[in-house]
Amino acid sequence: MKTKMTVIAGLALAALAGTAVIADSHADKAALAAVKARQATMDLYAFNLGQLGAMAKGEVEYNADAAAAAAGNLAKLTSMNQMAAWKPGTDNATLGDVTHALPAVWESGSTVGEKAQALAEASAALEAAAGGGLDSLRGAMGPVGKACGACHELYRAKSN
């Protein structure tokens, strides 16, 4: 009897889980693709910043060519037109945990555009500075970090 109950309970749970999966498949695929694209872009920012940060921290030896290459990548990435990846309706209130982007990104009075512009400018300055020696690289990293933080402070939900 007990076994039977367990089986029924198990089936019920499986049915519930199945419902959740079906509901998910109805989610806007285009919205999820946009989220994926912008998160991939963030990963590329982080990868290139990682090359530079390792030199700034002294974990790897400074190399002017490698620094210039990574900073050049970052400058290109941050100056891409990303409007399609930040389409309305892709906030965390609408899509849930797949994104940390707060609805405030799209609300009136949002300063996201200016923040993105500031990041592109700081990254361009970093590109100009990165090949000019370790101190030059270190100095130009600060404004990039500030630009990242300025946007995350206002427009990203806390992850923990």
């Binding site: 920012y45 982080a46 990868f47 910043l49 990682g50 940060g53 700034a56 921290k57 002294g58 974990e59 990293m141 600060g142 990039v144 970090g145 500030k146 990242c148 933080g149 300025a150 995350h152 402070e153 990203r156 806390k158």
Partner: peptide, 28 residues
């Protein structure tokens, strides 16, 4: 220790994510 000091200077975590929320203020 280097990671912590660099985070406080730049806001970058060891994964090159950046500080958000109140910690962005702290880093400033």
């Amino acid at each position: 220790a280097e990671d912590i000091a660099y985070y406080l200077e730049s806001g970058f975590t060891p994964d090159y994510d950046s500080a958000g929320g109140e910690m962005a203020q702290v880093v400033k």
